[in-house]
Design a protein around this nucleic acid. Structure first.
Lengths: 224, 224
DNA sequence: GAAAATGTGACAGTTGCGTGACAACAGGCG
DNA sequence: CGCCTGTTGTCACGCAACTGTCACATTTTC
């Protein structure tokens, strides 16, 4: 599940943000000061950090720089100040986005999603692939579609992961047999059958696949 | 150098944005319509795209979706509308950021930098040969023309790839037979037939080919 | 104008792919 | 142990698409 750390000294705002984000399905950590937030992030890193600029003690800018020193976590600033100067300074310090209070929760969520999408593509580790309404988590052994978990068999799962690791690239039956089945030779039609079964589960219209497509004469590929 | 494509129908705004960005050291391409912008991006992709939401013809949302279909280029929306609803829709469509007009150039630049910082680590997409309005992605098993996917057969595809790997060089029928068909001998006229079929699909006037040309007595070549 | 080279339409044989059926097999459970 | 359920690999059928060949048209060369 996606997690967010909210660093904000005003209890009312922090709590209402936390509640709203929890409603949206995020796991939310809270901190009232920069120091507390940094400590929290060190111990249990969240996927994304929301930080207010006006904090007692260590201020927001310093907090951002400290967070950035540790890792690449996406940082969104929420501030009452709307000066261009503040915005530029926060972004230069390492923030990824800047919202002016009062924030619309829907907008915040949309921006968080956009940021996560971007951060995921750039991250070195790839815990999850997103393809349209599909989410594939190879390490968790889990595939969800529109948020609903899918019951895939082991073979289907490995096939899907193999294809997902090379999104947009055609993989030949031969390659798939080698990588999914660890066969060096064998009946290539085996692949067809499993692709067909997989389509039944991940496609709206299995006969008109949008994601798992056939490239006649070459093989199969997964596309967005 | 960093490059930006600005898609905006209002000349005054577009020009002033372009000037300001050039001052900041960006190479700027301009387009007044979504169609023009998409075409421009296909031919000479910029690192970042700025797009207005209110465009004549194809609107901004569609434009974003089209851009996203092609690649992972960072997209920033600039719009006069500040409704949460529009912001959410644009971000959902695939935009990375959303600014409300009038935009402060300093802020825009800071956001562009933040976005590029985040996008930079992102892996490269599948290698592509571009030839005029044609795009050839050997690994993806895909050829597009003006952005539209072409339905090529396996033989046509391999023939085109072989020619594309040697753009500007004449390949004899013998060479093509060996490389595409893996024949050591055989009827050389076979090549002609497939070249003809390929021309029907990739050329505007198959009888007057601009890309896949005949070099009488020697063979065929692909040119820009 | 003749010969050589190339373009092109038609066609029949072949191939590639989706799919349903089925038997073998493994694992869970009473 | 036997039964049941879900998974897997094999096969055969049928449709659609592709391929290679040929004949004939067209263009170029000399």
């Amino acid at each position: 599940m996606a997690s967010v750390l909210v660093i904000e000294d005003d209890d009312r705002i922090r709590l209402s943000l936390a509640l709203a984000l929890e409603d949206e399905g995020y796991a939310v950590d809270q901190a009232a000061t920069a120091e507390e937030g940094l400590a929290c992030q060190r111990v249990t890193p969240a996927d994304t950090v929301l930080v207010d600029l006006m904090l007692p003690g260590l201020d927001g800018f310093e907090c951002i720089r400290e967070l950035r020193r540790a890792d690449e976590v996406p940082i969104v600033v929420i501030s009452a100040r709307s000066d261009t100067h503040d915005i530029v300074a926060a972004l230069e310090a390492g923030a990824d986005d800047y919202l002016v209070k009062p924030v619309a929760v829907k907008e915040l969520c949309a921006r968080l999603r956009a940021l996560r999408r971007r951060a995921r593509a750039s991250g070195p580790s790839v815990p999850t692939f997103a393809l349209g309404d599909l989410e594939i988590r190879p390490l968790a052994g889990e595939v969800t579609r529109r948020g609903q978990p899918l019951a895939l068999t082991r073979t289907e799962f490995r096939l899907l992961c193999e294809l997902a690791e090379h999104v947009g690239m055609v993989l030949s039956r031969q390659q798939l047999l080698e990588r999914v089945w660890e066969y060096d030779y064998g009946d290539h039609r085996l692949v067809d059958v499993h692709v067909g079964r997989l389509r039944q589960k991940i496609e709206d219209e299995p006969a008109n696949p949008r994601h798992l497509v056939t490239v006649r004469g070459l093989g199969y590929k997964l596309q967005r």
